[in-house]
Structure formats: C-alpha cells, structure tokens
C-alpha cells in the first residue's frame, strides 16, 4: 500500500510552485500518475504531499503559432490527445504517430507529455524525437519562466534541468520546411523500447543539408550523435554514406547495460535503426521494421 499523503489542487502555476517551494522534497508533482504512482507503490518515493496540477487551466492546450512555424503543446496534454490532435497531425505527423505508439491505450489516456519528459525515463519515445526536432521545454515557477533546449533538459538517468519548484508547462516544437523529413524508429520487444532513433534531415539538390540524429533508450538519456550528424551534412545520400553513419553511431553511443540487453547489442540496434531511418528518409532500401 502507498504511504500516507495529502493532496493539493492548486489553481495556478504560481500557486503550485509556491507549494513545491514550501514543502521541498516532501512534495511531488502529480498529473497522469503513470510513472509516479508506481514509485509510490514501491515506496521508492514517499512524499507527504502530492501537488495535483491537473486542475490548472490552460496547461493542456495544443496550438500552432500564427507563423505556422511553432507547435505549442501544453504539459498536461496526454499522449492520446497529442496523437489525435488535428493540429499535431497536420504540422508534425511523425510526432502524432510516435505518440500513438507510446506504451498502451491506458497509459496514453492518463499519461501527459509533461510528466513523460519530467520523469526522464530513458526509454521515453517522445523525448528522442523532440530532441531531433530541436524542441524547447518551458519551465515556470512563481519566480518566472525560462526555456531550455530539449537536448539540454535531460541531464541523466531520471534527471532533468527542472528545479524542484519549477513546473514543465509547455513543449515548443518547431515545425519543418517542406523537403525536411522527420523520422522516428524504434525496436521494441519488451514493454519499453530497447532502442530508438529520431532523425530530422533535409535534402536539397541531391545533397543532405543538415541532419539531426538522436539515439534514445539505450543509454541514461537520449543523445545527439554529433559526429554522425557532421559527417552526413553536405553529402550526397548513398549506401556507403549511410553505412559510414551507422558505424559512427555504433562508436558514438554510450549504452548502459541492463538485465535485457548487452552494450554491444544496443550499439548494433542503434546502428541498424540509423540505417533504417536514413533509408526511409531517402526512400531507398527496405523501410520500417518493428516499431
């Protein structure tokens, strides 16, 4: 049974932040509860106060800025709401498709994007793709608002740049120009993916412009493959180029070893997903695979 706690339902970000500041480590932010309640049941966390932020108005909004260039996803938007949002489907269909495959239907109904990212479980599906997309995370407290690039938000296993009194309020996702491909690939045979890969790449005049390539699930946090990205930039797509990129990813990844997969196996998965994503982005080779 879960330890005794009380629950507060603040009506604003400032009120929630003040509660978090006041109660310090005795308080935990509660929204969908999909990750938090499991920790509470296992007594890995024993807060005396849950700060239920679900009743703060407006935090679940999904909108596209008038420029059409920036998608704003409120922290309380559930995976299911993002998956089904016409705005997300039109602006970034791969993000909607990724959300449609998070965990299972019950988790997608309850779990929020803000909770998923704040928890920083290394196997998060959206985290990997959002870093590839160059998303920004908005953090707010009673002291103000700041924005952190998604790639700097995740600082380690279950660790983020969020301060204890801050709420993740919004995810800002730049949309892409026509001609830019957005791809999320994963390999999943357990409940959580073994490896994932996000790729955002544009090709103009037969050459790759920029590529953002992020490997997730296999290490403590999703990480950009800087060497592979630099190698791909300006090059003409070819099977040799892709093989070189995959080999670089294999070297560049820093897998953790767990009960399910060895480090070598995870490196192999990351390299294979790199190949698949690059082939899919250029319409070459066999696409897809286990998702």
């Amino acid at each position: 049974m879960i330890g005794v706690f009380d629950i507060a339902r603040p009506g604003s970000v400032a009120e929630a932040s003040a509660l978090l500041r006041e109660h310090g480590p005795d308080a935990a932010i509660y929204a969908g509860g999909t990750e938090l309640l499991i920790l509470l049941k296992d007594r890995l966390l024993e807060p005396s106060l849950l700060v239920d932020i679900k009743h703060i108005p407006g935090l679940d909004a999904i909108s596209l800025d008038p420029c059409g260039c920036l998608l704003r996803i409120g922290a309380l938007a559930t995976h299911r709401e993002i998956e089904r949002s016409e705005t997300v489907r039109a602006a970034l269909p791969e993000l909607a498709a990724t959300e449609a495959n998070v965990a299972n239907i019950r988790v997608r109904h309850a779990g929020t994007i803000g909770g998923n990212l704040s928890f920083a479980e290394p196997h998060s599906d959206p985290a990997t793709l959002l870093i590839a997309l160059g998303a920004t995370i908005a953090l707010e407290s009673d002291a103000g608002r700041r924005e952190v690039p998604a790639e700097d938000f995740f600082t380690g296993f279950l660790s983020t740049a969020r301060e204890p009194e801050e709420l993740l309020t919004e995810v800002l996702v730049p949309t892409v120009e026509p001609g830019t491909t957005v791809i999320y690939e994963r390999f999943k045979i357990h409940e959580r993916p073994s490896a994932s890969l996000g790729l955002v790449m544009d090709i103009e005049g037969g050459k790759i412009g920029t590529a953002r390539l992020v490997v997730g699930c296999i290490g403590e946090r999703p990480v950009r493959m800087i060497r592979a990205e630099a190698m791909l930039a300006g090059q003409a797509p070819s099977p040799d180029l892709f093989a070189t990129a995959a080999a670089l990813v294999r070297e560049e990844t820093d897998p953790t070893v767990d009960a399910f997969e060895s480090g070598d196996y995870k490196r192999q998965l990351a390299a294979t997903l790199t190949l698949r994503a690059l082939e899919r982005a250029t319409g070459s080779g066999a696409t897809g695979g286990a998702r």
Binding site: I7, G33, T34, L37, I38, K41, I105, R106, V107, H109, A110
Partner: peptide
Amino acid sequence: PVSSCTTL
C-alpha cells in the same frame, strides 16, 4: 480505459 491499479 484506465488501469485501476495505477489510478487514485
């Protein structure tokens, strides 16, 4: 659909 085991 909700997992009642992980819902308050």
